[in-house]
Simulated scan of single mutants.
Amino acid sequence: MTPHTDIPKLTFTPLYEQVKKAILNRIIAGEWGPGSFLPSEIALAKEYGVSQGTLRKALNALTREKRLVRYQGKGTAVAVLDEDSSLFPFFLLSDKYGKRVYPLSHICGVRLAPPSEAERAALNLGPDTDVIHIDRVRMLADCPVINERVTLSTARFPHFSFEFDKVPNTLYEHYQIHFGITVARATEQIEVTMPDAADLKRLNIEKNHPLLLVTRTSFDLQDQPVEFRTSRINTAHHVYRAELR
Results as ranks from 00 to 15, higher is better:
residue 1 M to R: 05
residue 1 M to S: 13
residue 4 H to I: 06
residue 10 L to H: 10
residue 14 P to M: 01
residue 14 P to C: 01
residue 17 E to W: 09
residue 18 Q to L: 12
residue 22 A to E: 13
residue 23 I to M: 09
residue 23 I to K: 05
residue 28 I to Q: 08
residue 30 G to I: 06
residue 30 G to C: 07
residue 30 G to K: 10
residue 31 E to S: 07
residue 31 E to A: 08
residue 32 W to N: 07
residue 32 W to C: 04
residue 33 G to N: 13
residue 35 G to H: 09
residue 38 L to R: 07
residue 42 I to N: 09
residue 43 A to Q: 15
residue 43 A to H: 12
residue 43 A to R: 13
residue 46 K to C: 03
residue 48 Y to P: 02
residue 52 Q to I: 12
residue 52 Q to H: 07
residue 53 G to L: 12
residue 53 G to T: 13
residue 54 T to A: 10
residue 58 A to C: 10
residue 59 L to I: 14
residue 64 R to W: 10
residue 65 E to M: 11
residue 66 K to E: 14
residue 69 V to R: 08
residue 69 V to K: 12
residue 71 Y to R: 11
residue 71 Y to L: 15
residue 72 Q to W: 04
residue 73 G to I: 09
residue 80 V to F: 02
residue 80 V to P: 00
residue 82 D to K: 10
residue 82 D to Q: 09
residue 84 D to L: 05
residue 86 S to W: 01
residue 87 L to N: 10
residue 87 L to A: 04
residue 87 L to V: 05
residue 91 F to Q: 05
residue 92 L to F: 09
residue 96 K to F: 08
residue 97 Y to S: 14
residue 98 G to R: 07
residue 99 K to F: 13
residue 99 K to R: 11
residue 100 R to G: 04
residue 100 R to W: 06
residue 108 C to H: 15
residue 112 L to D: 13
residue 115 P to E: 04
residue 115 P to F: 04
residue 116 S to W: 04
residue 117 E to G: 10
residue 122 A to R: 00
residue 123 L to H: 00
residue 123 L to M: 03
residue 124 N to G: 05
residue 126 G to E: 06
residue 127 P to H: 01
residue 128 D to E: 14
residue 130 D to G: 14
residue 131 V to M: 05
residue 132 I to F: 00
residue 132 I to W: 01
residue 132 I to K: 00
residue 137 V to K: 01
residue 139 M to K: 04
residue 141 A to Y: 11
residue 142 D to Q: 12
residue 147 N to G: 01
residue 147 N to D: 14
residue 148 E to S: 11
residue 149 R to F: 01
residue 151 T to L: 01
residue 155 A to L: 14
residue 156 R to F: 02
residue 156 R to L: 14
residue 158 P to T: 09
residue 160 F to N: 02
residue 160 F to K: 03
residue 164 F to C: 06
residue 164 F to W: 08
residue 166 K to W: 01
residue 169 N to W: 05
residue 169 N to F: 06
residue 170 T to Q: 08
residue 171 L to D: 02
residue 172 Y to W: 11
residue 172 Y to Q: 05
residue 174 H to Q: 12
residue 175 Y to M: 13
residue 175 Y to I: 06
residue 180 G to N: 11
residue 180 G to F: 11
residue 180 G to S: 08
residue 185 R to C: 07
residue 185 R to S: 15
residue 186 A to S: 15
residue 196 D to Q: 11
residue 199 D to Y: 08
residue 200 L to E: 08
residue 203 L to H: 03
residue 203 L to C: 07
residue 204 N to C: 07
residue 204 N to F: 09
residue 207 K to M: 07
residue 207 K to I: 02
residue 208 N to G: 05
residue 211 L to E: 02
residue 212 L to H: 03
residue 214 V to T: 03
residue 215 T to W: 05
residue 220 D to G: 06
residue 221 L to E: 11
residue 222 Q to G: 10
residue 223 D to L: 13
residue 224 Q to W: 02
residue 230 T to V: 15
residue 231 S to F: 01
residue 233 I to L: 08
residue 236 A to H: 10
residue 238 H to Q: 06
residue 243 E to G: 03
residue 244 L to E: 07
